[in-house]
Design a protein around this nucleic acid. Structure first.
Lengths: 188, 188
DNA sequence: GTCTATACGCGGATAGAC
DNA sequence: GTCTATCCGCGTATAGAC
């Protein structure tokens, strides 16, 4: 079945556009055109741009969690799992579809749109902290390691790595940043 | 002299708006209103939005370099200077005025606007790498430390820390991320 | 469900008067 | 240098026909 429903196509178009251009830079017109749907059709299925964005962001957030869980709940030492997460294949220059929303004033000003962003990062930091705490308690990592702070560092390296890569127009600084933090973690 | 020139006020307004709302989210109208300048006045001094943005971004980039230099060229060991840079007072929730431009498709698509962003981050990574290399060569830091990768990590932690802080609506995760990376660096 | 028509203000400027 | 007038298309819908 390649015929996806119209609401589905609208959501997917919105996801892409939010990722590429952000909320402010994404217009209902552009969404409709990319989805191959008419004006009336869009407003029949969704009440407007915020409604569509909510559906799109929710779907992206779910997908992200699932991807992270697959790695962090997998086998291996704590360091191996964190390393696998950091080194996982990524389209570096596109950046993080959730992280970029953080820069969008209209998203952050709307509590409904903001919530999934906030929750996703809170969950991610927590999950990483749990893995790191486990590693420390098993003696795989230094006893003095602060799981919460280190988890924040790891997530920040990713999010900041995207910024550096986009600034440079190359994925290289992203990978350098990841290598750098892994080197530090490995010697602890 | 409290009477700043009109072009100056226009540039300052543009800087603020670019920081708060990004390029796509900033309109000439909004710039004029914030600067208390008329339409005709704005278009007399600047050829349009890109021209103003170029002036604004250039000024912000210069300011940022000056601030960094003041710390990194100061006294202290490498680790002390990097630490001072990471811990310097910041308006965390506002984010980085240069880093945020990285998410703006219209900025990145215009080579003239993009250049200062690219150059600022290239310079910053280089400068930090030099400090770290110095520290390593003096034996203050581990001999195995990779200055380039570690510099990328440090800058990424800052840029990503802003993302986490904005997502959380609190500066706390930013400070955690900084603490985390400094703890790792201190034990190397 | 989808289409077309219509609306109103904003974005981003240009033109010409003062 | 600054002001006002004018322009054209887009953003973001609503209304009602089919």
């Amino acid at each position: 079945m390649y015929s996806v429903s119209v609401p589905d196509r609208l959501i997917e178009s919105t996801r892409e556009l939010l990722w590429e251009r952000g909320y402010v830079g994404t217009s209902p017109r552009a969404i409709q055109q990319r989805a191959g749907a008419g004006q009336g059709s869009m407003y029949h299925h969704f009440s407007g741009k915020p409604d569509l964005a909510l559906a799109a962001i929710g779907r992206t957030a779910e997908e992200m969690r699932a991807g992270v869980e697959e790695i962090l709940d997998g086998p291996g030492t704590a360091l191996e799992r964190v390393s696998a997460y950091l080194r996982r294949e990524r389209e570096v220059l596109r950046g993080c579809p959730i992280g970029r929303l953080t820069q969008d004033p209209d998203v952050m000003a709307d509590p409904a749109l903001r919530r999934p962003v906030e929750e996703t990062f809170a969950w991610l930091r927590d999950r990483l902290a749990a893995v790191l705490a486990e590693g420390r308690d098993r003696g795989e990592l230094g006893a003095g390691l602060d799981p919460g702070a280190t988890a924040a560092t790891v997530v920040a390296v990713l999010q900041g790595g995207y910024v550096l890569a986009r600034a440079a127009g190359s994925p290289e600084p992203f990978h350098q940043a990841v290598d750098g933090v892994l080197a530090l973690l490995s010697r602890i």
